[in-house]
Design a protein around this nucleic acid. Structure first.
Lengths: 147, 147
DNA sequence: GTAAATGCAAATTATTTGCAATTAG
DNA sequence: CTAATTGCAAATAATTTGCATTTAC
């Protein structure tokens, strides 16, 4: 039932990036790359490990930590701190955007805003800086929620 | 040489806030409040402890941790994460503003921008949220720096 | 074949907490 | 006087690392 073909998972978008950068693609790295490519949320390391081991149980937490760090340094992943003590990750392939965090539920919504981009560039310039990156995070409460 | 008068330090701005909120003002809490009132940068707990013990050596690190937490919950302090693994604090008395971080040196500059405030409110509204707070951080490199 | 990657357990780092002793109000 | 606060040392929680073993290229 298990044909050899099933072992060759298709190359994920992030795996492609890794190959282009000349990284050594181990089985675990390939799975983590796939999990990240398929995630449209902002998982933390614990969650990534859970998703990865669901596909292949022989992936250790250390490897997930090492891999997200590697990917972050290779500019494949963005790391975020939304509070709660754990770093959360998303692929840079999801593009440049910002976050609106529901302070009651922890839900994260994404948005873009061109006016904001313009203002950010302008402020950096005013101080004599080239903008490397920036983040805008809004923390809000659903209108009508008591408390 | 040491007159009794020297023991009565003037009441700092933050100590005043604490008293208004009915907090029990211990010696260590008073010193930490003063150090924070006099800081115009964004010290972490380690640094606050160093500044506090310089004024009075019998202040433990635990107490500094407990006090910044207390002050944060009382909305006397804002906590920031500028990367580097440690939380950094500043008095809310410094007003609402945002940060431009020099990625090479770690220096932090502050700025305000009314247009940005307006956009933030508007975006939250678009999603049906009341804005609780928000943060805008620009990471930049001094123009002309090689690398 | 060889340098790089992995798993595991132990180490680190930032922060929190239990508890007996101290202190503000 | 009494409840809140402190110091200290031990506990947590997230993340990193040393080292023997495995693996991609």
């Amino acid at each position: 039932m298990i044909s050899p073909a099933e072992k060759r998972a298709p190359i994920s978008r992030i795996e492609k990036l890794c190959i282009d950068k000349g990284m050594k693609m181990t089985g675990q790295r390939r799975v983590i790359a796939r999990v990240l490519s398929e995630s449209s949320d902002h998982p933390d390391v614990e969650e990534l490990h859970a998703r990865a081991t669901a596909e292949d149980p022989r992936i250790s937490l250390s490897t997930v930590y090492r891999t997200v760090r590697l990917f972050e340094e290779a500019e494949i992943l963005d790391r975020h701190d939304f509070g709660g003590g754990r770093a959360r990750y998303e692929s840079v392939l999801h593009g440049h955007h910002h976050h609106l965090i529901d302070v009651d539920t922890g839900d994260v919504m994404e948005f873009e805003d061109e006016r904001h981009e313009q203002i950010a560039r302008e402020i950096a310039e005013r101080y004599g800086f080239d903008l490397v990156c920036h983040r805008l995070e809004l923390f809000g409460r659903k209108r009508g929620s008591r408390t």
